[in-house]
Design a protein around this nucleic acid. Structure first.
Length: 351
DNA sequence: GATGGCTCGGCGAAGAACTT
DNA sequence: AAGTTCTTCGCCGAGCCATC
């Protein structure tokens, strides 16, 4: 599947982070109209020039999501507004943003989270900064974008550079295309887990690099404002894993982090989510077995012992609290410490 | 296959910041 | 002060797609 990537466009003034929330607030949930231009002109009061183009169009176009045409697929923006029969509608993310904005309830986090979910270039940068890479600014955060780079796997990516012959953001986006596309777009676009994808430009093979630093500095400022950016050592900046997990949500975090870089607790969270029933009970034998294979496979301790040891140690340290337990079916495997009535566990994990 | 409208993004000018 | 690099801004040519 070839996915075309349009230029990432955000609100125009970097410091004006309310702009998108304000725009979305003024739109109805369902917008009957025939084009983006109509939304800009009829609902938002933008001027349109004599040849029919929206004046100052950047911040409008960035709000839209993916567009499927006959045989091409283009991601044009952050998926706040999407096309439906007879017009457009606000997405879940947009509705939540507006709601939180109206009550002034940490709406900035919702905005940041949406960018992490849907902006491909932002996902590429966040991916690098969460998986062992760091962003280097010679003179301090957001100083001199042209010289800033991200180091990942011993390679330097000049992610804000518009020079096509440098290692730029397009090179970074190629590093792990599948992960960078992410589950959110996958679900939205109905692209299977195994399906190969490739990012292309809208008009050319490579996505546009024009004014890339102007555009990308806008979310970089938002992330700093949210406290997501930390300086790890001399001018090397990374994303704060805990804050991203807390503020943007565990799903967003996991969609950006390689399993190899997750710790046992993160993987445990993931497994519990996958294997638990609606009440939150999960089969400890099954989850424990997968967990051992993922985080401690070379340990020669017998699996049953390992599982008991892992959970009992956690309980004794206060990291895990058993909220409830019950007997399961034979298919649920062995219970904790071999006890039948501890086959299914409901666990609280304290980070 | 041709037409026309709608976007996209390239480009260049001008402004800002930094060097020499 | 003049040159140089970095950044922003906005115009408009041209590519893309829908429609006929």
């Amino acid at each position: 599947m070839i996915i075309k990537i349009g230029t990432d466009r955000f609100w125009v003034k970097a410091s004006n982070i309310e702009r998108w929330a304000e725009i979305l607030k003024s739109l109805p949930k369902k917008i009957p109209c025939s084009s983006k231009k109509d939304i800009a002109r009829d609902y938002l009061g933008y001027k349109v020039d004599e040849s029919g183009r929206i004046v100052n169009a950047d911040e409008v176009y960035g709000l839209f999501g993916a567009e499927k045409d006959k045989d091409s697929l283009t991601i044009v923006g952050c998926n706040f507004i999407k096309e439906i029969e007879g017009g457009y509608e606000l997405t879940e993310g947009a509705t939540e943003l507006v709601e939180r904005f109206e009550h002034n309830e940490e709406w900035e986090k919702v905005l940041g989270s949406q960018l992490l979910k849907y902006s491909i270039r932002i996902r590429a940068i966040a991916y690098a900064m969460l998986n062992g890479g760091y962003l280097y600014f010679e003179k301090g955060y957001m100083e001199n974008f042209a010289k800033a780079y991200i180091t990942l796997n011993n390679k330097k990516f000049y992610v804000f550079s518009s020079k096509p012959d440098e290692m730029n953001i397009n090179s970074l986006m190629k590093e792990n295309q599948s992960k960078i596309l992410g589950d959110f777009w996958r679900r939205e676009l109905d692209i299977g887990d195994g399906e190969e994808i490739e990012f292309r430009g809208v008009n050319k093979d490579y996505p546009s690099l024009g004014s890339i630093s102007t555009y990308l500095k806008i979310p970089m400022l938002l992330f700093d404002y949210l406290g997501w950016i930390v300086e790890s050592e001399d001018r090397r900046y990374i994303l704060d894993k805990h804050k991203i997990k807390e503020d943007a949500g565990i799903d967003v975090y996991e969609s950006l982090v390689n399993e190899a870089d997750m710790d046992d607790i993160e993987i445990l969270h993931k497994l519990i989510k996958k294997y638990s029933d609606a009440r939150g009970f999960f089969p400890i034998g099954i989850v424990g077995s997968i967990l051992k294979k993922k985080v401690d496979s070379e340990n020669t301790m017998a699996e049953e012992q390992w599982i008991d040891h892992y959970f009992v140690t956690g309980i004794n340290k206060g990291k895990f609290i058993i909220k409830d337990h019950e007997q399961g079916q034979p298919r649920h495997g062995r219970g904790l410490l071999g006890k039948k009535d501890y086959q299914l566990i409901k666990l609280e994990i304290r980070d």
